[in-house]
Structure formats: C-alpha cells, structure tokens
Amino acid sequence: MQDLLKRFGTVIAYLVLFTVLAASADNFLDPYNLLSILKHVSFLTIIALGFTLALAAGELDLSIAHVASLSSVCAAALLFNDYPIVFAMLAGIGCGTALGLFNGLVVTRMRIPSLIATLAVSTIANGLAYLITGGVAYVGRLDTAFLVFGRGNVLGVPAMILWMGLTVALTLFLLKRTRTGVHLVCTGEAEEPARLAGIRTRRMKLLGLGLSGLLAGVTGVLLTSSLSSSSPAIAGEYLMTGIAAVLLGMTTIEPGKPNVVGTLIGALTIGTLRNGLTLLGAQYYVQDIVLGVIIIVSVSASARELRKVAFSVPH
C-alpha cells in the first residue's frame, strides 16, 4: 500500500486537483477548455521530454527554452524569406539538435558540468535569436500549409495532441525497449559501473543532450506553427515549467528517476493548475509562486538523484 502510494501519490494528487477545479472553476469541464489544456500541455510535454532524456543520461539541460526560441526564430526567418516549408522546419529542428549536440560536446569533451555548460549555451542561443530577429517579432504572413502542423486537426483531435502522443510513445519506446535507451538510463543512474560494464557513457551523455536539443527544436517549430509568429522569447516560459514537469514526474511511476510517463503527468498537472488558476482569476504571479513551490517540493522528494547530476563532471 505504501509502495503504491509512493508510486501513484502524484497521480492521486492530480485527480484531486482536477476534481477540485471541476467543482470550483466555471467552464473548467467545458470540452473546449479541456482541449485547450491538452494543447498547451503538448508543447510543455515535448520540451520536458527532452529534459527528461538529458536527465536520464545524468545531465541537466538548462538551455531548452532558449534553444526552442532560437529554433522557432530560425524556422520563421526562413519562412518569411520564402524558403520551402520543409526546409524551414528541418532547419529549425536541426538548429535545436546542433545546439543540443554542442551542449553534449562541451560537457563530455571539455568536462564542464552541464549546469554551467547548458546555461552558457542557453545565453548564446538567446543572443543568436536576437541577432537574427534584430529584437523584433515575426508575426503573421505564414503559409497555411505550415500552420496546419500546429493548428490542424486529425479526426477532430488537435495535431498538437497527436505530436505529444507520438513523442511520448517514441521516448517511452527508446528508454524501455531499446539497448540504447537502457545504456542512456544506466549512464545516468550509475555512470562508473556503466562505463566499467562496457557502456560508452560519454556517447550516451552526448545522445541525451542531443535529443534534448532536438525536442527543443521540435517544440520551437511547432510553437511557430501554432502561434503563426515567432520571437526570441517565444519559448521562455518553458524552462521553469519544463523543469517543474520533469521534477514532478520524478515523484511518480518510477519515484526518484526521470521517467516519460511521470513527465507527462507532471506536464498535465502544471497545465491543469495554470488553467484552473486563470479561470479562478488568479494573477500570473500567483502561478509563478505555485510553480516555485512545486519545484521545491518535487526536488525534496528526489534530491539525491538531482544532487548527483547537478554538479557531476563526466568521467
């Protein structure tokens, strides 16, 4: 019973939160509102899954938000200059992946802790985004064939929810069913034993941070498509919410470990809470306070793992 509570306590807390909001916030259960929550949660889940993969390999990626913004800006800049849609999307995602791999190289080759390395790369990405845009936002004028990726529907289901489902399925498959995924997790959980067992741990860290960059790139491009605009700060909020989703996820399903389903539950909780607080008329700063409390409570539940990764230097 205690074990079940430990594994599913956060899920139960989410259900309680959902019930309370359903009873107290007008229109919370409106299908349009619920879809809106899921759509917002989709971006958060995709970017947070990238953070999850980096953390699974034992590294922090604090650059996700600025890398996503830069990817968004890259794609938008190309689209506004009439480059083909596929090229612009691949360039945006490629930009995120390249920065993710750069994070990985800085961490594994220069042996700089990821806490510092990704913060530096985040600053670089932010600077590059302002360099490309000149500080202004790209708004409107985007081809509908591009907008359908973020705004479209398939059989009534918003495309964003499908992208989220696909990302969850793929990351879950990677971590649970493939040798590479297992090596990634072993690297994060026990780096030296993993290395001694023949796992190429530095390569796994590079992969984890590379995939984190890739998913930040995907998030950036989908944000551009969904909002039909882009700016250097378009994904800014996803650093703290992304981290909070992953940390909250580490309190459930596989307690103490970054895990895919946990991240999804964490993102759902944060998305639902933000929506509920808005419906209840709470100011945006109240949401920030709640987010901060969530992070502290989550970290206290999985502090050992986080201390291990936050200041570690790769072997």
Binding site: R179, V182, H183, C186, E189, A190, E192, P193, A194, L196, A197, G198, I199, G256, K257
Partner: peptide, 19 residues
C-alpha cells in the same frame, strides 16, 4: 566494489552493456 547499478534489477545488471 562490484560496479553494480544498485537501483536496477538483477537481470539488468547481469546484462548491463551487453543486453
């Protein structure tokens, strides 16, 4: 020190690196 990943299962440890 055995170099085991103590949070992982027995079979995962036996096959670690050569799954």
């Amino acid at each position: 020190d055995l170099a085991l990943a103590v949070d992982q299962s027995v079979y995962q440890n036996v096959f670690m690196g050569s799954e």
